[in-house]
Design a protein around this nucleic acid. Structure first.
Lengths: 190, 190
DNA sequence: CGCGACGTTGATTTGCCTCAACGATTGTGG
DNA sequence: CCACAATCGTTGAGGCAAATCAACGTCGCG
């Protein structure tokens, strides 16, 4: 279960044994059943989570009760309500499991300790965040410039794995379109 | 002109004189006239740019020739086509000046040198990227869940300064709506 | 002074949403 | 273990927010 975390880390930085031991001591495993919350809006997001098994989502709920999915996270991905985590204010997002899942999580004080004792983790997360920034920027451009059909087809082209594992209406919620629209697109294109 | 850069940096990390001298030696000033390109799509984005004066925008142009603004950057903000910069592939975005502007830019090899000689810049950019990630995520949620009117009113509430300096049709292009729609919203709400 | 940039207003169109009804699975509590 | 309820997807009809298209006024600057 720590293997996936270490292989992920080693893509960007090299750890010696002492450093690996520190990582192992600071990240705690947690098991989640399908539909179980990892974080509820209103609570403070106290962890940064690395998914080792399964699939989670982060989403907001608007005043009409409609859900809008901010991100998915499957094996090897990270997830949190970063704003809440950084500012220690109540989360606006919920995070829950779409499948039975396992995560390794680190508390904020421990993450700060990690930065202090193994400064190269600043570099590691800097690189992850650069990639996340690019991905998010592309998503913004897509959402302001593409039709529903283009967005959906590009999504399943970009994330074929996710498309297999996620109900269509969740993809709709991620793209900001309705399940009916997805159904009609699929009818004529697939 | 370097003052703004240093005061920005010192919000997150502390530099000694040697380190400050390195920064000063690696960031080069550049002056841009209004409408001048800092980067054209197709070219490789070789710089990370810090705006010391004026106002720039990064945008894509779709097959219909319509522009979609990915980001604005005014004094104290950073701008680049990060994907192109990271991968050294041709940029998909244009960057140009909306006002007469000045930037401090750093080339990729020099940025790598900076990370090597002053590793705390990993931390500095990690923090910047965390903030950018949060901002981008909020923009995605807004764009998939809010009406044109909500998006526009929230934009001018969040960036009152920008609203003063930018023509309305540029804001429209940033939000993914039309100038006509903005005009009609303003007519009835302001 | 003339032209491009910018904004406004009106008429019309349209992509997608909303609402509603209905099968097919899935899963779960009695 | 089965019955009943969610969950998920599909299809059709109708409506609406925002886009499109078009025409026009103003400003500023090259």
């Amino acid at each position: 279960m720590y293997d996936l975390l270490f292989s992920n880390i080693s893509k960007h930085i090299i750890l010696d044994e002492r450093e690996a031991a520190i990582v192992q001591s600071l990240f705690k495993p947690r098991v989640l059943r399908k539909r179980q919350y990892l974080l509820q809006a209103g609570d403070i997001s106290r962890f940064e989570n690395f998914v080792t098994k399964g699939l989670l989502r982060a989403y907001t709920v608007d005043r009409d009760g409609d859900e809008h999915i901010a991100m998915f996270a499957m094996e090897g991905w990270w997830i949190s309500d970063m704003f809440s985590f950084l500012t220690e204010t109540p989360a606006t997002q919920h995070i829950d499991a779409l499948e039975d899942s396992e995560v390794l999580h680190i508390e904020k004080p421990d993450l700060e300790k990690l930065y202090r004792e193994v400064p190269k983790f600043d570099r590691f997360f800097r690189i992850l965040l650069q990639n996340a920034f690019v991905a998010n920027q592309q998503r913004v451009i897509a959402s302001i410039s593409e039709t529903a059909e283009e967005q959906y087809l590009n999504f399943i082209r970009k994330y074929p794995t996710l498309e297999q594992r996620i109900p269509h209406h969740q993809i709709a919620s991620y793209l900001g379109i309705t399940p009916e629209t997805i159904s009609r697109i699929r009818k004529q294109r697939l």
